[in-house]
Amino acid sequence: MHTRTWHVTINLSEHDGLTRAEAVLRTDAGPELRHEAVARLHPGDRDVPEIGDELAACRALSGLAHDLLDAAVADVEENDPASGTPSIAADSPTPA
Rank of each mutant, 00 (worst) to 15 (best):
L12P: 01
A90M: 08
D53H: 14
V76Y: 11
H7T: 15
V48S: 00
E14A: 09
R46L: 15
D16H: 05
R59K: 06
R20A: 02
R26K: 12
H66K: 10
E14V: 10
D16I: 04
P95R: 02
A65R: 05
T85V: 15
E32I: 02
D45L: 06
S87Y: 08
R34M: 08
V8Q: 04
A82W: 12
D67H: 12
R46C: 10
E22F: 00
T5G: 02
A72Q: 12
E54N: 04
H7L: 13
A29L: 15
I10H: 01
E54S: 06
A29H: 12
E78K: 07
D91S: 06
E32T: 08
P81F: 05
H35S: 10
S83R: 10
L64E: 01
A39I: 09
L61K: 03
R4A: 09
L18P: 00
I88W: 07
H35M: 10
L69S: 02
A39L: 03
L55I: 15
R4D: 10
T19Q: 01
T9W: 12
T85P: 00
A82P: 03
L61P: 03
V73T: 01
E54Y: 05
H7I: 15
A96D: 06
V48Y: 10
L61W: 08
A39Q: 00
E50V: 13
R34E: 10
S92F: 07
G44Y: 12
D67M: 13
A96G: 06
D16P: 00
L18N: 05
L25C: 04
R46Y: 07
G84S: 01
D47R: 10
T5S: 09
L12Q: 00
E14L: 05
E22I: 11
A89D: 11
P86A: 11
D75I: 05
T5C: 03
R26D: 13
A89G: 15
T85D: 13
S87R: 15
A89E: 15
V48P: 00
A23W: 07
R46E: 14
T19V: 13
P49M: 07
L61F: 09
A23R: 01
S13L: 08
V8A: 02
L69D: 04
P86G: 01
C58K: 06
P49H: 10
E22A: 01
S13Y: 09
A56H: 02
A57G: 02
V73C: 10
D28P: 00
A56K: 02
A37S: 06
D28F: 04
H15Y: 14
D45E: 14
D70R: 14
C58D: 11
H15M: 06
I10D: 01
P86N: 08
D80W: 11
L64C: 01
A29N: 08
P43K: 00
T9I: 13
V73P: 03
G63N: 03
N79C: 12
D53T: 01
D75R: 09
A90K: 10
D53K: 03
E77D: 12
E54A: 04
A57R: 01
D45N: 06
